[in-house]
Nucleic acid binder design. Structure first.
Lengths: 289, 289
DNA sequence: GCAAGTCTGTACTTTTTATTACAGAATTGC
DNA sequence: GCAATTCTGTAATAAAAAGTACAGACTTGC
């Protein structure tokens, strides 16, 4: 066994047909367990038919499925026998790219560095549907605000993405009060207009939630909740991945804070929209402005 | 799975008959691989007959040998999935939220599961400024397209975010040809309009880059490059974090593929825009449509 | 736009594998 | 040391899974 079967699969990905590639990815996503069951289970997990699985292993050079399984078991055996150099084989193919390593580390550390209970209290705040939630971001981070708004809007009412020209923002400020929550994504280089917006909203009594980097946007001064995330990576750019992860945890939290309401709304919207999963007709939801 | 099967075997060693104990020891000495083959192999390795193996697993409380195997596979899966808490005896920090753990793991595995060289060749493709790059995404993933476009636009010319109403998309399709690259973000539930868009673009000769989940959008059929990412998390929603990480790696790659050009453009744009770092006057860049 | 070729799933056959019945061997208790 | 009981393997059976042939769907090339 010179090298892991996993790598052979990756290398030869080109050679596979479309469905075989599905099989390959299914296997890689649950390697090597998926290959240790029956052909039918494998096929099912990959969403293809049994013969495709057989063709897949045949293309990998195995005379039969059993030979393939034997090989997987052998690999597993040698790996489990030497738990030490497993680290060099299994999880860390990623070791190559320091950028990836750093992104992963950033996400982990972001959550590790979060004040305890901060997430919980925020979820409670955002799950309160009497509140009106406004989301806004900077040049790059506005995409995050948009992403979060798209989800929150589904599980609860009164979600507003503050978008468009700077001038329009002012309109949104009118009538803001203590019932309003403003979620601001702002990482360096902090934009003065965002600061202005935050100040004005705070002045009118709105609750300010700031998602920022560890250097902290000046908005902290007027913020009620602050989530600092790691953004530094070995690249000319900053990484927003940890910010997105934070958003997703919040979204999941709000969704499950009131599962019934969320589910009901999701169902209702699914009815309105004729989305399709694999097949059917549909119309795209209006992109939010 | 309250406790490892291994321990159950040790506990109940007393209850076994002589040959069953042989089976038990054979299993423990090559746990769990020995249990993953056939009954005959197991029997052979233990130096007993097949029925003894069957009686052994029956005594452990399994209705059949397959149930026993399923259990072993499940154990193995949970162990391999969380390479982190394998070192659970060491001081464990982040152990808190399984959602966070999974997100982190997804990012790592996404890169581990990428065909070798795929990222490199993609970076080369995207760094070619004679190409025109179009980005588009689905209901949630459009935010990612937007994020990536915002960055790419800075380091190279000819970047276009396909946004707005579905009808407008058609306009963008006009005149697309072999010089065009279309980056599509599409995770389940795949949207039929995106598929249409991809098909049309491909039909006109455009190069299709698909960023999707491991189940693979139907767009793979017309795609020239496919980046599958892990999106499954213990939440009603899917996680786009790994997709964002992919985007950031691509962005960084393109930026550094031609550092001089990138730097020059960044400087030039900084001149045009009066952004401020901590202090100065500014005007917000026009949000892209 | 059509034909040749490739891919993919359904339905079937063959083989393997799990399971069971039973009889002989071993063990235990007296 | 003998009988009752338990244990164990052989051999037959039933279940399943692997493997195959083929036809329809889809691509690809001209």
């Amino acid at each position: 066994m010179d090298c892991l079967l996993k790598e052979a699969v990756l290398d030869r990905m080109e050679d596979f047909t479309v469905t075989e590639r599905k099989a390959a990815h299914a296997l890689l996503s649950n390697y090597p367990i998926l290959g240790l069951g029956t052909v039918a289970q494998f096929a099912d997990a990959a969403g293809v038919s049994s013969p495709t699985i057989l063709r897949f292993v045949a293309r990998l050079g195995f005379p039969g499925f059993s030979d393939f399984q034997t090989r997987l078991r052998q690999e597993l055996e040698t790996q489990l026998r030497s738990p030490l150099d497993r680290s060099s084989h299994l999880p860390n193919q990623t070791a190559g790219d320091p950028l990836v390593e750093r992104i992963v580390e950033n996400v982990r550390e972001t959550f590790a560095g979060l004040p305890k209970g901060e997430l919980d209290s925020l979820v409670r705040l955002l799950a309160d549907e009497r509140r009106v939630i406004h989301l806004i971001g900077g040049r790059f981070t506005d995409a995050l605000a948009r992403y979060m708004a798209a989800h929150l809007r589904i599980v609860r009412p009164n979600v507003n993405h503050v978008a468009g020209q700077e001038g329009n923002w002012l309109d949104q400020l009118i009538g803001m009060g203590s019932k309003d929550v403003v979620i601001i994504f702002d990482i360096r280089r902090y934009q003065s207009e965002l600061i202005e917006f935050a100040r004005s909203a705070a002045a009118q009594g709105a609750t300010i939630v700031l998602v920022t980097d560890t250097w902290m946007s000046p908005i902290v001064k007027v913020a009620d909740h602050v989530l600092p995330a790691r953004i530094a990576v070995p690249s000319p750019w900053d990484s927003a991945t940890a910010l997105l992860a934070l958003s997703e945890v919040l979204i999941a939290g709000v969704t499950q804070h009131n599962p019934d309401r969320s589910h009901a709304r999701m169902k209702a919207l699914e009815g309105l929209r004729n989305d399709r999963d694999p097949i059917s007709k549909s119309r795209r939801g209006t992109p939010d402005i």
